[in-house]
């Protein structure tokens, strides 16, 4: 299929990524090449074939509703890029 510039920009945006104008053509061309390569899958007749999301046949795995220890508060926040010691902090939604 033909992947337009808009398609690629939309995919980048859905992925929360941005492409600098300078690198756009290189990235786009690699993206298109890979996509063209995987398109061979459409040649395969898969009528009636069940999708295989898991490689092994495992089902109904559950745990009991029993409390496990949570992380210490400071450990939970220890990797936070920004925190006030209580909450994770992120920039505002409004600008």
């Amino acid at each position: 299929m033909n992947v337009s510039r808009e398609d690629i920009l939309k995919v980048a945006s859905l992925s929360k990524l941005e492409l600098a104008e300078a690198e756009f053509e290189v990235v786009a061309s690699k993206f298109r090449n890979v996509l063209a390569f995987v398109e061979q899958l459409n040649e395969v007749d898969t009528t009636g074939v069940e999708e295989m999301a898991h490689p092994v046949d495992v089902h109904t795995v559950t745990r009991s509703d029993t409390l496990q220890e949570s992380l210490d508060h400071d450990v939970a926040l220890s990797n936070a890029p920004k925190s006030d010691g209580e909450f994770f902090l992120v920039p505002p939604v409004l600008g």
Partner: peptide, 12 residues
Amino acid sequence: HDEVHGRADSKI
């Protein structure tokens, strides 16, 4: 969210 000014960081 910072409901007053909308400028301060949001708390998660």
